[in-house]
Nucleic acid binder design. Structure first.
Lengths: 158, 158
DNA sequence: TCCGTTTGGTTGTGGTCTACAACTGTTGTG
DNA sequence: CACAACAGTTGTAGACCACAACCAAACGGA
């Protein structure tokens, strides 16, 4: 029995609260960026920036959404010039997406905005606390990811 | 300059990640509860449980959604017997919502489920870490709430 | 080589959650 | 007693999501 019920409840409440404010923030952050980056732009463009060219299904997995969703969102990003697509030379079915200059610029813009907001919000935080929270948060996300997938059954019943 | 840019980015990434998995979890948690509690049930019923009878607008503020949204969701919860409504004796325009037995039961059920999931996910966490994360998370949510409302301008421009 | 199967991606459809605007009825005030 | 402010409901529309159906390329065994 590692965790008190009380701290557990407190933790879930905190997560719920972060969920709420985070949802609001993400939409607000999106339409404050110059290059009219849609709200999902961040989660799709960042992987392209860090890992380079990759395919739709990989990006969908990264973003944690269905492939169909990613497909539509990427189509929008392509039309708006944030990304470009070229056929995968090794598989005619797939395309490889990569960031354009405009996309990278919009991403940098979004990053700057986020950084501004974060530094404002974390104004009176100590470096240690911030670092600690980052680590704990990441660890929690990983544990939740690992613990959650189990109940993905009992749907074929009827 | 209180926070390194690096830890800041790490922190925002962690928050984004929690946002993703948390969103998935909350819907999964909702339709795993017996009393077919909708996904928003938790955020509306908990305040009723802890603070007792209150009005629609108060619940909307608590949940962080528009009053119209809360109104519809509360209507559903009333039809499904989780809450009941009585006219506010001091203001004929308002109603006071309160939890029914069925609502409390569904809430207890949901709480048990969440607790199970949380203890599974936090299996190898120490009490101290969990408590610390809860505190930091709460603090962060508060600071974000305070820091975010500012950029709610620049919309009347055109 | 050829045909059935698998796989990557797109599109059709429907459901959920959300906000804003318009409206009804109530309260309180000059 | 009009009139502004307010509580809540309903109309409407948009964002996001998943599942199912589908197309075309790729794969694999006979």
């Amino acid at each position: 029995m590692p965790i008190t019920r009380e701290t557990c409840e407190r933790l879930t409440a905190g997560v719920a609260r972060i969920l709420r404010t985070g949802r609001l923030l993400s939409v607000r952050a999106a339409d404050a960026v110059n290059g009219d980056l849609p709200s999902y732009g961040w989660s799709l463009l960042v992987p392209l920036e860090t890992d380079g060219e990759q395919r739709c299904s990989a990006l969908a997995a990264r973003a944690g959404v269905d492939v169909s969703v990613a497909s539509r969102q990427l189509a929008v990003l392509e039309r708006s010039g944030h990304i470009e697509r070229r056929p995968d030379p090794r598989d005619g079915r797939a395309s490889l997406l990569h960031l354009t200059g405009a996309g990278a610029a919009a991403l940098a813009d979004a990053r700057a905005l986020r950084s501004d907001w974060a530094t404002a919000a974390l104004a009176d935080w100590s470096e240690d606390d911030a670092r600690l929270l980052g680590e704990l948060l990441d660890r929690l996300a990983g544990d939740l990811d690992r613990a959650a997938p189990a109940p993905a059954l009992s749907r074929v019943a009827s």
